[in-house]
Amino acid sequence: RCGYYVEKKKRFCRMVVAAGKRFCGEHA
């Protein structure tokens, strides 16, 4: 899952990502 920290939401993104990727499409 995406490891991007969403500052405005004060939590991690947690969106599912493709195999081998660290971030989702929105945060890549």
Rank of each mutant, 00 (worst) to 15 (best):
Y5D: 01
G3T: 14
A19Y: 03
E26H: 06
Y5H: 02
R22A: 09
G25C: 11
F23D: 01
K9H: 15
A19G: 09
A18M: 04
V17C: 13
G20P: 06
G3C: 11
F12D: 13
A18Q: 05
G25M: 09
Y4T: 03
V6I: 15
Y5R: 03
A28P: 02
V16Q: 10
Y5G: 01
E26V: 12
G3L: 09
C24K: 00
G25F: 12
F23R: 06
R1F: 15
K21T: 14
R1I: 14
A18L: 13
K9M: 15
Y4E: 13
F23V: 06
R11S: 12
H27W: 11
V6K: 05
K8E: 12
K10Y: 10
C24I: 12
K8H: 07
A18H: 12
K8P: 07
K8A: 13
K10T: 02
F23K: 03
A18N: 04
F23E: 04
C24A: 00
E26W: 08
C24T: 01
R1K: 15
C2G: 01
Y5S: 02
Y5L: 11
C2T: 01
C2E: 02
K9S: 14
C24D: 13
F23A: 03
K21H: 06
Y4K: 02
K8V: 07
V16T: 10
M15S: 14
F12N: 12
R22W: 10
E7P: 02
G20S: 10
A28S: 10
R22M: 10
K10S: 10
R11Y: 12
K9T: 13
K10N: 11
M15K: 04
V17K: 03
K10L: 08
C2Y: 02
K21L: 07
G20R: 04
K21Y: 05
A19K: 07
R1G: 13
G25I: 10
Y4L: 06
V17S: 06
K21A: 11
K21W: 03
K8S: 14
C24L: 04
A19I: 04
E26D: 08
C24H: 00
G3S: 09
R11Q: 14
Y5I: 11
G20Y: 03
E7G: 06
V16W: 06
C2W: 13
R22L: 10
V16D: 07
K21I: 14
R22E: 12
E7F: 05
V17D: 01
C24F: 04
A19F: 06
C2A: 01
K9W: 15
H27R: 08
E26G: 11
R1C: 13
E7D: 03
G20V: 12
K8I: 11
K8T: 12
E26C: 11
C2K: 01
V6F: 14
E7A: 09
F23W: 09
R1E: 10
E26R: 05
K8F: 08
G25S: 08
G25Q: 06
A19M: 03
H27V: 07
A19W: 02
E26N: 05
A18C: 11
Y5N: 01
A18F: 06
M15Q: 11
C2M: 08
R11H: 13
C2F: 06
F23C: 06
C24V: 01
Y4M: 02
C24P: 00
C24E: 00
K9D: 14
